[in-house]
């Protein structure tokens, strides 16, 4: 009798977990490091100190620039970001934590940079910023700052599932002359050394970020392109669908980590 109860219980548990699997199949099948560890844990104490103190963080110079730009008017209507969105501290809170997102009317997958540019072209009727331009980086940094400390939380659903899976595929496909996939370093070998660098889990919660190697502030797509270069693969264009798909997958992979934008990295 006792064993019968156990069997029934086991069967019930099995069926219910199977049902959960079906409901959340895409993300469930994808692997991600557990627990997720932010890139800041893999850098030297000096770099950590730069990020921890807002004044000494070079990245904050771009966020400050973005704060000025938020109030600057553009286009024939003389509108600024502030004209519609008012106080960024309220209107932009949490935005960077849940992007990239499918734009409802167009069905396009937009990250924060693309969203800002869409606002510029469609609402302000102004010219779009170039992808890695200082202005777009500064505004993205300022918008990101409003979500700092909040948990990365992108939703994967029917609408973005195909894009998510495409990103996931790219993450685990071997590419380039070195024949390496993202997963080979950032899932299989994080915590180990490449020369003096400790391989991180490859999370995106600090971007756009100030990178010491660049001596400059740069976008996530620039960082991803750098990895493509590192494995001697063809570089996708910043802002391309390919990199947006990867960004969506990486945002899901970074789930639970706090937003550190604008961060400082090696």
């Amino acid at each position: 009798m006792v064993s019968f109860i156990f069997i029934m219980f086991g069967l019930g548990w099995g069926v219910s977990s199977f049902l959960i699997c079906i409901a959340d199949e895409g993300p469930k099948r994808a692997k991600r490091p557990q627990p997720p560890r932010s890139g800041i844990e893999f850098v030297s104490p000096e770099i950590r100190a730069f990020q921890e103190d807002d004044f000494s963080s070079p990245a904050m110079l771009w966020a400050t620039r973005g704060e000025h730009l938020w109030q600057e008017t553009a286009g024939p209507r003389g509108e600024s970001c502030q004209s519609c969105h008012h106080d960024a501290a309220q209107s932009m809170k949490g935005v960077s934590a849940r992007y990239p997102k499918i734009d409802e009317p167009s069905g396009a997958l937009l990250n924060v940079e693309a969203r800002i540019n869409r606002c510029r072209t469609e609402k302000q009727k102004a010219a779009a910023f170039a992808y890695d331009s200082e202005s777009l980086l500064a505004l993205t940094a300022y918008v990101g700052l409003q979500s700092r400390g909040m948990e990365m939380k992108v939703t994967i659903d029917e609408k973005n599932k195909a894009r998510f899976e495409s990103g996931q595929r790219l993450f685990s496909t071997r590419i380039g002359q070195m024949n390496l996939a993202c997963t080979n370093c950032h899932d299989d070998n994080y915590g180990r050394k490449l020369l003096n660098d400790t391989i991180s889990q490859g999370h995106i919660n600090a971007y756009p970020a100030y990178r010491i190697e660049w001596q400059d502030f740069g976008s996530l797509h620039r960082r991803l392109r750098a990895c493509f270069y590192g494995v001697r693969a063809q570089l996708p264009t910043a802002g391309s669908d390919e990199l947006l798909d990867l960004e969506l997958f990486l945002a899901w992979r970074s789930q639970g980590l706090p937003v550190e934008t604008p961060g400082v990295r090696r």
Binding site: N196, E213, W214, G230
Partner: peptide, 10 residues
């Protein structure tokens, strides 16, 4: 001073 392991020409 150490060099980085991954080349970056972006």
């Amino acid at each position: 001073v150490t060099d980085t392991a991954c080349l970056d020409a972006t």
